[in-house]
């Protein structure tokens, strides 16, 4: 345990609780509790406000929009907007696309991050400081600064130079166009450069550093190799950490729009579809035939509820994941000690 690095005696105010009368203490405690409750309720409202807003405006019907008396809760619930949003987003297909990217991406990223985090936490090797600096660098530098060469490299992916090497002998270098395939995401994730992989590695390293060394030492003495120690001893002890990193990664992959917008050309995952939704709605509302039983003009008026529905449709799967993993997540985060 850490010693307090200073003396506290000088600062003691000398008011001990024993001197106060008992009802006074009780009153003070009550007032404090009340203040805290009010503050927390207010803050919780702020945190939930956008969700409440989405929920309220999603189910408004066309009549409710004309009706000035309807501000929050719609008078008649309707699924009109939902139907349109469902079609504009191309929801099942986009969700599938998201999952195709997300599930393998997150798992590959987790494996690489666990390995690298453990490597940085427990091994001394030459240039460790330098490499760790590089890791911090990858966290700080946004992908936007080097996306163009990355895009070109992925368009003519040469298997880390092996393809070009083959090209020296056969005449034409062996390259593969990975654009528009989820393989781009798998590759980046498997080699620790996925969406915020650096941050995951950093979190995992901090966690491993705080774990007692005795477990590993015992395993080593019993003749367990480094990799086996990692797999059999360390990983089973880090389940809360894994839950934490998993939730973070799922959220980051699910919400990513930038990489998906760049690496895909035809079918887009949900987050990208949402960014183009407003534009699409504009086009549809100018068209004559309309959509989902509404004319183009009505569609233009319904823009706000439809967009809200789009947001809702996107948020719902994440909220479900969050509700299921929340307990592990919050406990895992709090226990993992992600401290500088």
């Amino acid at each position: 345990m850490v010693k307090p690095p200073f003396s506290l005696r000088r600062f003691s105010s000398g008011v001990s609780p024993g001197r106060m009368a008992k009802p006074l203490i009780r009153a003070e405690r009550f007032v404090r509790g009340l203040c805290k409750a009010v503050l927390l309720t207010g803050l919780c409202f702020v945190m939930l406000y956008p969700l409440l807003f989405i929920l309220c405006s999603s189910f408004k019907s066309l009549e409710d929009i004309y009706n000035p008396a309807v501000v929050w809760i719609p008078q008649e619930f309707s699924l009109q907007a939902m139907a349109v949003a469902f079609r504009v987003l191309d929801y099942p297909q986009a969700l599938l696309k998201t999952l195709v990217i997300l599930v393998p991406g997150v798992l590959l990223q987790l494996i690489t991050a666990l390995l690298a985090g453990y490597g940085f936490a427990r091994f001394r090797f030459p240039c460790r400081g330098l490499l760790f600096g590089l890791l911090i660098f990858t966290i700080i530098v946004p992908v936007q600064t080097y996306i163009i060469p990355l895009f070109v490299n992925m368009q003519q992916f040469n298997f880390f130079g092996i393809g070009s090497l083959i090209g020296l002998f056969t005449g034409s270098p062996l390259t593969l166009n990975l654009i528009d395939t989820p393989a781009v995401f798998y590759l980046l994730a498997a080699f620790g450069m996925g969406i915020r992989s650096g941050l995951c590695i950093f979190i995992i390293r901090q966690f491993f550093r705080n774990m007692p060394v005795e477990l590993e030492e015992a395993a080593m003495i019993d003749g367990c190799g480094s990799f086996k120690t990692f797999l059999r001893v360390m990983v089973p002890n880090t389940l809360p950490l894994i839950a934490t990193v998993l939730v973070f990664s799922i959220v980051w992959y699910y919400n990513d729009y930038y990489l998906s917008a760049i690496f895909f050309r035809t079918e887009f995952p949900l987050s990208v579809s949402l960014t183009t939704m407003s534009q699409l709605l504009g086009t549809y509302s100018q068209g004559l035939q309309g959509m989902g039983g509404m004319t183009g003009q009505e569609l233009g008026l319904m823009k706000e509820p439809v967009l809200a529905c789009g947001c809702l449709l996107i948020v719902v799967p994440l909220v479900l994941v969050y509700v299921f993993l929340q307990r592990y997540f919050t406990e895992g985060v709090e226990r993992s000690g992600i401290v500088g």
Partner: peptide, 16 residues
């Protein structure tokens, strides 16, 4: 240790 960080190292060189 270098083996543990190898995948990340390859990624950092080629993709960063």
């Amino acid at each position: 240790g270098l083996l543990f960080i190898l995948p990340w190292l390859i990624g950092v060189i080629f993709f960063f």
